[in-house]
Design a protein around this nucleic acid. Structure first.
Length: 473
RNA sequence: GGCGCCGUAGCCAAGUGGUAAGGCAGAGGUCUGCAAAACCUCUAUUCGUCGGUUCGAUUCCGACCGGCGCCUCCA
């Protein structure tokens, strides 16, 4: 069994094989740092994290590139509204993005090219396209891509170019283009651009890059640098990027290099709120920092997302998040139990057998187009069966620990350890000792009162044969 | 109008042409002073509706109903 992935290009699940194994080049469209990213954005980044981690689990050597869009219409508009220079406005949001990424346990990409630092590559790309005659300067001084010169335009999105609804996007610059459907590669500078410092000199005129151009230039520059390649193994993003963003990236890149831009196109579905996509525009969004401030364990967010396939819309509700939190807690207790299970136990067979079965199921599920819901099903089934075996004093806990570790390397959904400060820890120990004393003298009323006292401070206790254990909740 | 997706128990959600994983919640039991955790048992004769194909469909086809997305530099 090998990994198969749904390729938007073919609308089929296809066996995945990189161009130059074991290297896999992965490019994922990153955030536009005009504001905080919301958890809908992060659903996509989390899906990409799953992809990245599972590729690595499968033995591939992944080179992951995620760009930061720090110059585009929205960043410029936001900077102007704040009365700041572009970089001054975006810097804190870049910082916030990295913090949120870490909070959500998303593995850092190997490279985070920024649009503002990749302008020379963009200019080169535009020059190449001009040389090849697929780009032209419009009457407004901006440079446009001529989709009529790129016959396969529309292949990814399956939008027949003749069907493109053109009436709705008539703005002033439409009159500058040869064809209303052509898109801007390089926008001629305007007053606001200059005001915020979003303008660069180029042989074809002072201006700034178009959004689609940024991704093409940055991805080609990065894979050229790291892997001497012109074709990405995988390019991923949210479904809303299929058109026009990714369609345009393909057109620009392939027109310039003459080679396929990306072999696999993967797209993650939206995170919804009451059936409608989460969006800044609708105001129905929640940021990662909102969750963090609410004390939500990132593991719960991850499990919640893993429990719905990445190509299916997921409705975000507090109930679903709480349910995932309960699942995470169960995993944490299982891990805790394994830690105490040591190497002892009767025989080595039963648990080891369960571990092997789990690993097989886990892999089969994720091999099937990253079916994380099924992988989670296998995980919980494994936890259940292993708990039963542990109750029967079966041996082989080491194999279970190893299997769990392996799976967590991909899913990473064990509860975040909460550390107690020394003073609190001393107090807890003292209270538990007091309770034990009360229990020994059968003063259960007192014992229960102490338990409630601990619970009020967020300390949960559990009486076991080896003594009373506690944890912070 | 064009392209496309979804509708499975109280909630969330996998899934297969042969009779429904898993999580949460709930009920009963074992264990426990009581809890907690864990375990055992139970909880959809049924997969939006109506037709069709088939020995057999939740799974394939069609229609319809309901919800949603893209076609606007939105993850």
């Amino acid at each position: 069994m090998t990994l198969s992935l749904y390729n938007t290009l073919t609308r089929r699940i296809e066996p995945f094989e990189p161009l130059a194994p074991p290297r896999v080049t992965l490019y994922t469209c990153g955030p536009t740092v005009w504001n905080f990213a919301h958890i809908g954005n992060f659903r996509t980044f989390l899906f990409e994290d799953l992809l990245r981690r599972y590729l690595e689990y499968s033995g591939y050597d992944v080179y992951h590139i995620m760009n930061l869009t720090d110059v585009d219409d929205r960043t410029i508009k936001a900077a102007a509204a704040a009365g700041k220079r572009l970089g001054e406005h975006t810097a804190p949001f870049v910082q916030a993005f990295f913090e949120d990424r870490d909070y959500l346990r998303i593995k850092p990409a190997h490279a985070y090219p920024r649009a503002t630092e990749s302008v020379p590559a963009m200019i080169r790309l535009v020059e190449q396209l001009l040389d090849r005659g697929v780009a032209y300067k419009g009457e407004d001084g901006s440079i446009y891509f001529a989709i009529a010169k790129f016959p396969t335009y529309g292949r990814l999105s399956r939008l027949d170019t003749r069907e493109l609804k053109i009436g709705a996007r008539v703005t002033s610059d439409e009159y500058a283009k040869d064809d209303p459907r052509d898109f801007a590669l390089w926008k001629k500078v305007d007053g606001v651009d200059e005001q915020v410092g979003a303008a660069w000199e180029a042989p074809f005129g002072r201006g700034r890059p178009g959004w689609h151009l940024e991704c093409s230039a940055m991805s080609l520059e990065q894979i050229g640098r790291c892997c001497h390649a012109e074709t990405l193994d995988i390019h991923a993003g949210g479904v809303d990027l299929i058109f026009p963003h990714h369609e345009d990236e393909i057109a620009q890149s392939e027109a310039a290099t003459g080679r396929p831009f990306a072999r696999f196109w993967l797209h993650g579905e939206f995170l919804n709120v009451r059936g409608t996509k989460m969006s800044k525009r609708f105001g129905n969004f929640l940021t990662a920092r909102d969750l963090r401030e609410q004390g939500v364990d990132a593991a719960a967010v991850r499990l919640l997302f893993w429990q719905t396939h990445y190509r299916k819309a997921l409705d975000f509700t507090d109930e679903a998040l709480a349910a995932a939190g309960a699942g995470v807690k169960r995993l944490g207790e299982f891990q805790e139990r394994l830690r105490g299970a040591g190497g002892a136990g009767r025989g080595v067979g039963e648990l080891a057998k369960l571990a092997t079965k789990f690993e097989t199921d886990f892999r089969a599920a994720l091999d099937d187009d990253l079916n994380a819901p099924r992988a989670c099903g296998a995980l919980f089934e494994f936890v259940h069966e292993a708990n039963g075996a542990l109750d029967r004093k079966a041996g082989g806990a080491a194999a279970v620990r190893a299997a769990l570790d392996g799976a967590m390397g991909v899913l990473d959904i064990l509860p975040t350890a909460k550390a107690a400060d020394p003073a609190l820890e001393r107090w807890i120990a003292e209270r538990i000792a007091a309770r034990d004393k009360a229990r020994k003298s059968k003063d259960f009323k007192e014992a229960d009162w102490v338990r409630a006292e601990l619970r009020a401070k967020g300390v949960e206790i559990e009486d076991t044969p080896g003594g009373t254990k506690w944890r912070l909740v």
